[in-house]
Amino acid sequence: MLDVVWHHVEGLEKIDVNKEQKLLMEADRIIFQFPLYWYAAPAGLKDWEDKVLTRNFIYGDGNDNLMDKEFGIVVTTGMPLKDFQRGGSENITIDQMMAPLRAIADRAKMRVLPVFTIAQFQYLKENQQMQLLIDYQRYLTQKYPNSLKHRQEWFIREFSDRFKNFDETNYSECETILDTFIQQKEDLEQLRSTIDLIKQGEED
């Protein structure tokens, strides 16, 4: 995978504000990941926010230090996703709960990504858990928006990186799989442009 830095803020002995701010400035995409505690992030993350995300750093010094970086949230919950909607047992949406974090991101002129919610992971079947793991990896490194085009590009890049580690396969078998996948992607693009041409003809 592309360069991903995992930084556990609750594990820090002491928060070095300059160091934390520098780490944020080095990133292209900043993702807060946490379990949902009473409709919010745990106290450890809030404490880190209050110390590191100073007014000056976010917008006050005029430098827009985080401008155009992407901001994502990964949140896990033991409740089913269907509960988090108006009329559901929780009667509040995940987006509503995440509003304060997004407000900071907006203030910093960041690009807000949709929340990646993991609900009741232990209830998922093995294949669903596997799918979720890769969806999560895509959330970390795939280009946005999450379109089929970007998904295909991500798989092409990652397949090329990973197939050397596959068991019981050979180079040519993997190459055939990759080439066929790319061919399908190109067929889709070809069909789309054909449809665009026909549509143009219909309008004339």
């Binding site: 793991l133 798989f155 990973r162 580690n165 068991d167």
Partner: peptide, 11 residues
């Protein structure tokens, strides 16, 4: 690796 190929199949 298994997970990656499961997700590739979905794609």
């Amino acid at each position: 690796n298994r997970a990656f190929l499961v997700a590739l199949k979905t794609a």
